[in-house]
Design a protein around this nucleic acid. Sequence first.
DNA 1: TTGAATTGCGTGTATATACGCCTATTTTGC
DNA 2: GCAAAATAGGCGTATATACACGCAATTCAA
Lengths: 149, 149
Amino acid sequence: MTSSPPPRADRCSCAGLRKATRHLTQHYDQHLAPTGLNIGQYSLLANLARRSPIAPGAFAALMAMDRTTMGRNLQPLEREGLVAVAVDPADRRSRLVSLTAAGQARLDVARPLWAAAQTAFEDRFGAAQAATLRGLLATLIATDLATAH
Amino acid sequence: MTSSPPPRADRCSCAGLRKATRHLTQHYDQHLAPTGLNIGQYSLLANLARRSPIAPGAFAALMAMDRTTMGRNLQPLEREGLVAVAVDPADRRSRLVSLTAAGQARLDVARPLWAAAQTAFEDRFGAAQAATLRGLLATLIATDLATAH
DNA sequence: TTGAATTGCGTGTATATACGCCTATTTTGC
DNA sequence: GCAAAATAGGCGTATATACACGCAATTCAA
């Protein structure tokens, strides 16, 4: 007897998502390269601009990112003086991450380059499809996938 | 005068994609953990199963992955004996990556755990939405985003 | 045929991601 | 009040990702 036909690898939602992320990240990173930021760093600064100051743990949850990943990702930004991390006086276990003036300035420089990347993407992929995709992704992010039942 | 309202960071297709990828990757990785593989490694083995042997460069292009990333990702799999890399006798610049018997065996063990992760995802996200998402992602991956005009 | 251009890969470096383990601080139960 | 539990975060380790650079083998052109 032969084994049943193996599930096609291209039906894996996760692999498709990861593959598409690699593809699109390279596009945005190329546009942002002159600013010295990648799309991950740009995204952190842009989100921080609307929520500064915020605790690293809360920021990580907001970005659907592991707590320790957030800590590592903040390090190069802190080293360059784009964000500042200080002990929270109200709870000295916690920290407060703030966008600095240099961080805001860098963000202002990067924003039009990000917009160019976004526009170029939508021109090629289709603005309507892009909007549909963003909607699906937002739903996915809001979907509880905890293994426990 | 005040500056114009900044574009919302949550309208960035790339950031949304990256965020969703983190979310979904953790789900699949948790299901696959007993196999000692993560979803990236599983995806490599599953794709290799249908195309072995293949040159690293061609494999990288197939996975929309940088050539050097592919090389690095193959290292732990090679160390565990799940894939084998040999010089291509027809062109000694090139290599041929093959799935080993141990790699096939590991894949057979992992497949039902991957299927459980996929099923759990579709149960919670919706199978129809998941299919729509995979279609959009496939289109995105096939979209040429080269910066040059 | 032989030097130049091309091609295929590996390495060094840097950031991204997350698990396990640890310390410090706060909160809770008694 | 004080000890236990819970919470916030750092660090070691491992893999993921990709750019710049360099080497070896092949192909191309004069």
